[in-house]
């Protein structure tokens, strides 16, 4: 098995005017290609921070990150953008859709930064919208959608580019159990059929139990 994500004593300190918050404290973690990992822990323990660091959206204060055995520190802006675009798919805790774009264009966003023919981009977008059951909302704007629908758009956007790693921050948080189960099934099928590595933050014990591995965080530290 190949190591997909490797973290070595990662620390993250948030420095605000008069307090320092140690959001991640010496986290070391290695995730194999094709794994499905849940991250659990109480609110404020550093789950989102961990995901952001893995997703190259934030720099750790200390420590080493390797993706597929290559250290990413010192990568140029262009290479980092390339990695985010090709290898990573992110589902944000609070969706972060672009309000001025409709559902279809929001979903197609990662494909926009790839060299890709129009037809192929449209086809991929259509397929993934179908998978999350939003075909009939393709022309709607985020402000016209329910929280659960936004969540599904966010998931669709993360998976449309068929990335090797999906980082999902509570992707089922706003969904009822049926819808949550559907999203979970989608992630599981990507994981099984395409071998996509999935790291998912969740508060739902039942969902976490469906994954092979659970990482517990407490106060920025890994506990087992």
């Amino acid at each position: 098995m190949q190591t997909m994500i490797y973290l070595e004593s990662i620390s993250k300190v948030y420095q605000t005017r008069n307090i320092e918050t140690l959001a991640l404290d010496q986290i070391s973690l290695s995730i194999q290609r094709g794994e499905f990992v849940s991250v659990m822990g109480p609110s404020g323990c550093g789950k989102s921070t961990l995901l952001n660091v893995m997703g190259l959206l934030d720099n750790p204060t200390q420590g080493k990150i390797m993706l597929e055995g290559i250290e990413v520190q010192g990568y140029s802006d262009k290479s980092l953008a390339g990695l985010r675009n090709q290898k990573l798919g992110f589902v944000f805790q609070n969706f972060h859709l672009i309000p001025s774009l409709n559902v279809r264009d929001n979903v197609a966003l990662p494909l926009l930064y790839r060299k890709m023919a129009n037809d192929q981009r449209k086809r991929l977008t259509r397929e993934v919208l179908e998978q999350v059951g939003l075909t009939h909302r393709a022309q709607h704007y985020p402000s016209e959608l329910s929280g659960g629908q936004c969540q599904r758009v966010a998931v669709a956007r993360a998976v449309v580019g068929q990335p090797e790693i999906i980082l999902a921050d509570e992707p089922t948080g706003n969904l009822d159990s049926k819808m949550g189960e559907d999203i979970m099934l989608l992630l599981q099928s990507l994981n099984k059929e395409m071998g996509t590595t999935v790291v998912m933050v969740t508060h739902d014990r039942k969902l976490a139990d469906e994954t092979r591995r659970i990482v517990h965080l407490f106060d920025g530290r890994q506990v087992n």
Binding site: N85, H96, I98, L109
Partner: peptide, 16 residues
């Protein structure tokens, strides 16, 4: 800034 950060998260380079 939000929109730009989102674009960046999905692969937009600084240049683009």
């Amino acid at each position: 800034s939000q929109e730009i950060a989102i674009r960046k998260a999905f692969g937009a380079t600084r240049k683009s």
